[in-house]
Design a protein around this nucleic acid. Structure first.
Lengths: 153, 153
DNA sequence: CCGTCTTCGCAAGGACATTGCGCGGGACTT
DNA sequence: AAGTCCCGCGCAATGTCCTTGCGAAGACGG
């Protein structure tokens, strides 16, 4: 996998903001012929630099309307403890985001649920079953103020 | 704007997972002719149900590598106080996500920065300038475990 | 029972994506 | 410095796809 040059970077910047742009227009905006652009795009996709394309829906169209922010502390910071926790949390499909954090808690999770009953199920079946957890703190999003896919978009 | 039927819902579900699928294949997977599918997609986009399409990049390709989670408390919960804060926070391009929350803090923000110096600038120029703030608590993501665009993807 | 409205499928024309091919410029060797 | 290799480009062609106009079928209400 070779390094990204400035044309690749321009392509990525455009595709972050408009993932459904046609190859022809993308080529024009980065100053390439459509064929060269198509070949570069193919490389970016196959090498994994672009991991996918996704439609961004307005909140009223979403099935999963409820967002919970979950702070979790583990019983230790040993590599094995972290690895076991992370392997388990990856299996829960409702966890959209999970970061290992600095600060008071070890992990922060963003969990999507359809409603409160659905969240109760997720909490019971998934979150409570995560290994090495000593503290779980759930907060709910009352309202979404901003949800941008990328910086400055 | 009419309600979404089951075909619209199927289209949205597919487009959430593959935003660059061709109209022809999308039509086939929801059981419509390409022309009918194209017209429905046009309506979904123009009515705002689909707010955009975005390429999802692997973290190594991103300019903005550093993620900060910022908890903020305001001096009150009056509608005017919240509205003024929200109007101000929307102006900062580095704030990717902002929720009004239940729990200890009033707002939680996900902020993207290029590096620590960039974050220091954002904190100084934007976050510190937000109105009615009485407490700011920044934590940094040490490692990304999960970053899914949608449930179960 | 008829008019209207909506949404479908079909067909055509124009745009688009992709692949093979040949060229040119840079790097490296002799 | 000349030769060679190799990577990436543009061009061209072909097959596919997207879109729009058109007519028909069904739902609904007067």
């Amino acid at each position: 996998m070779s390094a990204l040059d400035s044309i690749d970077a321009a392509m990525l910047r455009i595709l972050q903001q408009n993932g459904r742009i046609s190859n022809a227009e993308l080529a024009e905006r980065v100053g390439l012929s459509p064929s060269a652009c198509s070949r570069r795009l193919d490389i970016l996709e196959k090498s994994g630099v672009i991991s996918g394309y996704h439609a961004h829906l307005s909140q009223k169209a979403l099935d999963y309307r409820m967002i919970a922010i979950v702070h979790i502390s583990l019983s230790g910071q040993f590599a094995k403890t972290l690895a076991e926790f992370e392997a388990a949390v990856k299996l829960c499909p409702n966890v959209l985001v999970c970061y290992l954090m600095s600060g008071e808690y070890d992990y922060i999770l963003r969990v999507a649920a359809k409603d409160l009953a659905d969240y109760e199920r997720i909490h019971r079946d998934w979150l409570s079953a995560l290994p090495h957890v000593v503290k779980i703190n759930s907060s709910f999003a009352l309202r979404e103020i901003i949800d941008r896919p990328n910086v400055g978009v």
